[in-house]
Design a protein around this nucleic acid. Structure first.
Length: 639
RNA sequence: GCUGGCGUAGCUCAGUGGUAGAGCGCGGGAUUUGUAAUCCCGCGGUCGUGGGUUCGACCCCCACCGCCAGCUCCA
């Protein structure tokens, strides 16, 4: 009998080739393992070992164990569907695990699985779990496997078998007469799974190909511990509570109206103030760093977009052209060509580089209806755009400064946790290898010198240049793409951009395209979700809600306070309704104003305010001036 | 764009093959309030849009628009 050498927990031993972990663990008196890591591959107790390899047992405490039982849950769900809708009616696609659970892509003949079917499916799954069927792994010859699944009418499974590499083994897992093609791993019986819940159903193309039929994807989440499962469900609740679309309406910030058009945003007065604060801050910070502010039009001649290459590479995202005196014009999907035109408006000397042109430029892109989502994905949005043109010698410094600027600005909005991705040269790249090398190394140096950890997406850059993407982590752990710093070797060539060097000759500059927020709309959405609507004082549209207990008696003093605050730059709103104090407090709380200032007889008498903070509750009474100082101090510190 | 679900008053939602209801909001009145909802009265809807079936449609069918969850896409 042939032997293989394995190493388990540091112990080396020889076992028969084809032995599985169950045998091996029994031999070593390892109890309670659900599977193991063979090299880097997660396998289950039934998978045969056929090569010399290091094995680490996986127990319930190991995160990998979740993957094993989640995988089994997806099989249990598949079996439940078969039993509910008929073995011959249900055609299975793929059923993998996800970060928090599992899904299965299925086709049920003559029935569309809906949300209301989920409880029924769950119930059937629980039955299968309660019966604790043993799960048996088998290996099959390709022909046998094809024969088997063709017998079941499993057309999608047959397609998978045909795609499996000749030299790989084909395995199936069987539980109480239900056999599924699967590479595993699985637990050894249906009773060994954890807590689960089916969450939702959605469509998913077979093989992710939009020309192929669409299957139904049933999602579930699963954990060993019921508490963890509930925590996860609470996370969904929390995310729902933070939904910027809801907050945007409740806080009267913005509106998306179908009569205006899908994906087009109306900013309401309070949203308008918010935007002004954001934009003023943005402009000031850019001016401080030597950017020059520009404005460019919303449409441009087709010839411009032809020259820039947008009409050959980006046309499907552009709105249809309009005819203006027999010439075609397009609404801009990007600001770049205009910025290039401004650069080219005169001969540039190396002495004035780097030139940094910045604009809050509103662009319009045709996005497919199905992808639109609140402020996060829209058809008209304002990029906080800038183009930096520089000499090769300046590239490194420019990138460093730009990334530093972006991170600093994001920190001002309360984001502390960043993930940085560098995307490098793809195979269809244009531009010289030297250009790419200089650009890529400057990106890496900038990230490293700022002490940020990063991942490299090898070959993931656009054809015209490498880039850095910055994602921020929000208060409940989600990542959002914001900043991007992107080299462009294409436009300088296409538009023949030049500068005159010290040698009095013309040279091709480097151009970098960058955005920090990404877009004002999207960033607003992210802020709202991050802060659950409770915006930091300095960007809150209304900073103080002033409430007279009895408008008749206290209004005069309240108006005086309002003036005092307004003159000093504080955004105040008076609630002069003839309502009870409790009602006015409640409304102010619901609208999440950072501070509420109550005025009654006492306050009028003493010329004070009774202050209530959204975050800290009651702060007691204080004089006008000390309240103002408190506000100004927090605003200065961007709290 | 695709699959499934949904579309009733400004908002959240109930409802039936015989042309609609609640709460909040809004308007008016009463009340003059001390830290999360005072009471009364009233206004408000061609039931997403357009076709069709039917004696009759908000309800059934079709198309379109929009929204939601995914998929696909994302220079």
């Amino acid at each position: 009998m042939e032997k293989v050498r394995i190493r388990v927990n540091g112990k080396e031993l020889e076992v028969e080739k084809g032995a599985n972990l169950k045998d091996i663990f029994r031999l070593l008196n390892i109890d309670g393992a659900l599977g193991g890591k063979a090299g880097s591959k997660l396998i289950d107790l039934q998978t045969p070992i056929r090569e010399d390899i290091e094995i680490t047992p996986i127990f319930k405490d190991d995160p990998e164990s979740l993957e094993i039982m989640r995988h089994t849950l997806s099989h249990i769900m598949a079996q439940a569907l078969k039993e509910l809708y008929g073995y011959e009616k249900v055609h299975l696609g793929v059923g993998p695990t996800t970060e928090e659970g599992f899904y299965y892509d299925v086709e049920v003949e003559g029935h569309a699985i809906g949300q209301e079917d989920l409880p029924k499916i769950e119930e059937k799954m629980r039955e299968i779990i309660a019966r604790n069927y043993p799960i048996i792994r088998k290996e099959l010859e390709r022909e046998k496997a094809l024969e088997l699944f063709s017998g079941y009418g499993e057309k999608y499974k047959m397609e998978i078998i045909e795609r499996i590499d000749e030299k790989d083994t084909i395995s199936v897992y069987e539980q109480n007469g239900f056999t599924d093609l699967c590479r595993g791993p699985h637990v050894t019986s249906t009773g060994m799974v954890g807590e689960f819940k089916l969450t939702h159903v959605a469509g998913a193309y077979w093989m992710g190909d939009s020309s192929k039929p669409m299957l139904q994807r049933i999602y579930g989440i699963a954990f060993w511990d019921k508490k963890e499962l509930e925590e996860r469900l609470r996370f969904y609740e929390e995310a729902k509570k933070r939904d910027h679309r809801r907050l945007g309406r409740e806080l009267e910030l913005f509106l998306i109206d179908e009569d205006i058009g899908a994906g087009l945003v109306l900013w309401l007065p309070k949203g308008g103030i918010f935007r002004k604060i954001l934009e003023d801050y943005w402009k000031e910070e850019h001016l401080k760093r030597g950017y020059q502010l520009i404005y460019t039009p919303h449409v441009g001649n087709a010839k411009l977009w032809e020259r820039s290459g947008h009409l050959s590479y980006y046309k499907s995202n552009m709105f249809s052209p309009m005819d203006i005196e027999h010439e075609e014009y397009f609404v801009k999907p990007m600001n770049c060509p205009f910025h290039v035109a401004i650069y080219k408006s005169k001969v540039r000397s190396y002495k004035e580089l780097p030139i940094k042109l910045a604009e809050l430029g509103t662009v319009y892109r045709y996005e497919m209806s199905g992808v639109l989502h609140g402020l996060m994905r829209v058809r008209g949005f304002t990029q906080d755009d800038a183009h930096i043109v520089c000499t090769p010698e300046q590239v490194e410094e420019v990138i460093h400064e730009t990334l530093d600027f972006a991170i600093g600005m994001l920190k001002d909005f309360g984001f502390e946790d960043f993930k940085v991705y560098i995307s490098t040269r793809p195979s269809d790249a244009i531009g010289s290898l030297e250009q790419w090398q200089l650009a890529e190394s400057s990106l890496k140096k900038a990230v490293e010198s700022l002490g940020l950890s990063y991942e490299i997406d090898e070959g993931g850059g656009a054809f015209y240049g490498p880039k850095i993407d910055v994602k921020i982590r929000d208060a409940i752990g989600r990542l959002w793409q914001c900043s991007t710093i992107q080299f462009d070797f294409n436009l300088p060539e296409r538009f023949d951009m030049e500068y005159v060097g010290p040698d009095n000759r013309r040279h091709r500059p480097y151009m970098v395209h960058r955005a920090i927020f990404g877009s004002i709309e999207r960033f607003t959405g992210i802020l709202l979700e991050h802060y659950a609507g409770l915006l930091p004082l300095w960007i809150s549209p209304v900073q103080v809600r002033l409430i007279p207990i009895s408008p008749d008696k206290h209004m005069q003093y309240v108006l005086e306070v309002e003036n005092y605050m307004k003159e000093r730059g504080i955004r105040v709103e008076v609630d002069s309704r003839d309502e009870r104090l409790n009602a006015k407090i409640r409304d102010a709380e619901l609208q999440k104003f950072p501070y509420i200032a109550v005025v009654g007889d006492r306050e009028v008498q003493e010329r004070t305010l009774s202050i209530r903070s959204k975050k800290e509750g009651s702060l007691g009474t204080m004089s006008l001036q000390s309240f103002l100082e408190l506000l100004l101090d927090k605003i200065r510190r961007k709290e």
